[in-house]
Amino acid sequence: MERPIDLELKKLKEQLLTMAGEVEQQLSLAVRSLVDRDSQAAEAVIAADERVDAREKEVDRTAVEIIVRERPLASDLRLVITATKIAPDLERVGDHAVNIAEQALVLNRMPPLKPFVTLPRMADIAKEMLRQALTSYVEHDARLARQVIARDDVVDALHEEVFRELLTYMLGDPQTIPRALALILISRSLERIADQATNIAEQVVYLVEGQDIRHVHGGEERGV
């Protein structure tokens, strides 16, 4: 049975997915600007950030409209609430993509410090986490969401690894400090993106199960 609200909810989901697609593209482009030393790509990421910000507002507007017009309840209400929480997470991912692009611009003006190994891997995992978190939202799949949450630790560990390695560079040769710092900031952004994906996944668990698992420490309690 199609209800008037179904159309509106579909629109909300579509807006969120469009935003997610754009954010993902921003992230891919930012990582490429770093790995391929492509400063044009970095500039494109920075220029496109406004569009992502506008998408966030668009999602909010639709959500408010649904709340006012349809007074959603039960799972409808949870869908709207989670959309308004996921959009800012995506917007933050967009900001991190910009941070990465900005650091890439700095790095591209200097000779490479070392070949990229861990950072692209981190980027791949973070991107996949983001994609899976969004898939779990669309498909109401709490199991997939919990898998995303479990992977956050992997990215955290990689970030620590990158940090320690770059520290040795800086200690060994002060000339590497600007480049090592830029790389640490990039690693930090990727680690934060994985956190945003985790936040989104936590919202999906709330959406599907009505259970708020945020700020519960330890994997067991979060059911991962």
Partner: peptide, 19 residues
Amino acid sequence: LFTNPQRPETEAYLLGRLA
């Protein structure tokens, strides 16, 4: 009850889907 009903009948009623 209004945000997270436990019974499918309640969910259906709140969503306006009760046959």
